[in-house]
């Protein structure tokens, strides 16, 4: 394997090199403590050493507000929204967020493949970066290590004084061509040490979660939950959406748009006439967690949680998905027979 070395003080030069070829999106400092992905205009603003962004790269492929069609009320004509490929370098992405995109790819490709999402996905060069797990990351428990290069074209692993640069794909080689880097010194990047773990092998989680259906943990979690839906909105694998009709102020036309929705929100299951099928916060919490660890993994063999820790880090009430799952695990070990 051909490994190069990128010294920290050359990150800015690399960003400039990439910007000459394609638009670059990368983490940049926002608030005092926060980092967010944004289009790069100033190479010096890029931050590669960060714990997590509040929103993942999902926002570029399934934007929070996404036009589906435009209509004209005067003649009832309509046209599909124009969707352009992102065609950019996504720089400084963590392995769990890349894994989340695999899951979204699956959702929007299986069955009836959807143009809006898949079109935007085209032309992306993925440049990953390793990270030091903080108190919320638990990707290791779902099989995604901080050094996982799967899905990336180039991967940067943090070592002393900079990064080891691994060219993973041909595309990755092309984008780096012309940017001279020295060979990497011997010495391995840190594989990262997780502080959070799910105490069960991934392969057995489905079984445990199936048994948790009538667990008291859902009601207990509901007591602490305000039902604000933040956990859905920051989740990189949540893709649920609602559809909204917008009419312009001249009332001559408008757009049909989809907007992010979340299963923690009360109206999510409401049908015409007002019936809500998951009326309680306990049922909604259960659905959220089982969706990540059972319902969708039943179909695909992959958990729909990538261990990024966002739902926990950004929960004002401090509800931890790892604690919920571990509680289910320990209950299961005590009473395995309650399995459905």
């Amino acid at each position: 394997m051909d490994l190069k070395f990128l010294a920290s003080d050359r990150v800015e030069a690399l960003v400039s090199h990439l910007m000459h070829q394609k638009a670059v999106y990368a983490p940049q400092r926002m608030g005092r403590h926060s980092v967010a992905l944004d289009k790069v205009t100033n190479p010096a603003a890029v931050v590669l050493d960060y714990s997590r962004t509040m929103q993942s790269v999902k926002k570029y492929f399934q934007p929070p507000r996404d036009e589906l069609l435009k209509f004209d009320l005067t003649d009832q004509s309509f046209a599909a929204a124009t969707v352009e490929p992102l065609d950019a370098v996504l720089l400084g992405i963590h392995s769990y967020d890349r894994a989340a995109i695999d899951r979204l790819d699956y959702n929007f490709s299986q069955g009836q493949p959807e143009k809006n999402y898949l079109k935007r996905r085209e032309g992306v060069i993925w440049v990953g970066v390793s990270y030091e797990p903080d108190e919320f990351h638990f990707s290791g428990s779902v099989g995604i290590g901080p050094l996982e290069t799967e899905g990336f074209d180039v991967f940067l692993s943090r070592v002393g004084g900079g990064y080891q640069v691994e060219t993973v794909t041909e595309k990755g080689g092309e984008i780096l061509a012309g940017f001279d880097l020295p060979q990497a010194e011997q010495g391995k990047p840190s594989p990262g040490h997780f502080h959070q773990h799910i105490f069960l092998p991934q392969a057995r989680l489905n079984e445990v979660m199936a048994a948790s259906y009538s667990s008291p943990v859902w009601e207990e979690t509901a007591q602490k939950c305000v039902g604000c839906g933040s956990c859905n909105i920051v989740c990189p694998t949540c893709y649920c959406f609602n559809v909204e009709e917008n009419v312009d102020i001249k009332v001559t036309g408008g757009t049909r748009e989809r907007i992010w929705d979340g299963c923690m929100l009360r109206e999510f299951t409401e049908v015409a006439g007002g019936e809500v099928f998951r009326g309680g916060l306990a049922e909604r919490q259960r659905h959220r967690v089982l969706r990540k660890f059972k319902y969708l993994s039943d179909r695909t063999g992959h958990p729909w949680c990538v261990g990024c820790g966002r739902c926990t880090a950004y929960c004002t009430a401090g509800i931890s998905i790892v604690s919920i799952v571990n509680r289910c695990v320990s209950d299961f070990e005590k009473h395995p027979t309650t399995a459905v």
Partner: peptide, 24 residues
């Protein structure tokens, strides 16, 4: 003006803060 019932928002302010990536 279109003669339809407007939809009233019901979810918490947190949703919009998270969309805008505001620091909590």
């Amino acid at each position: 003006v279109m003669g339809k019932q407007p939809v009233e928002p019901t979810s918490a302010v947190c949703v919009e803060c998270k969309l805008k990536e505001n620091e909590c």
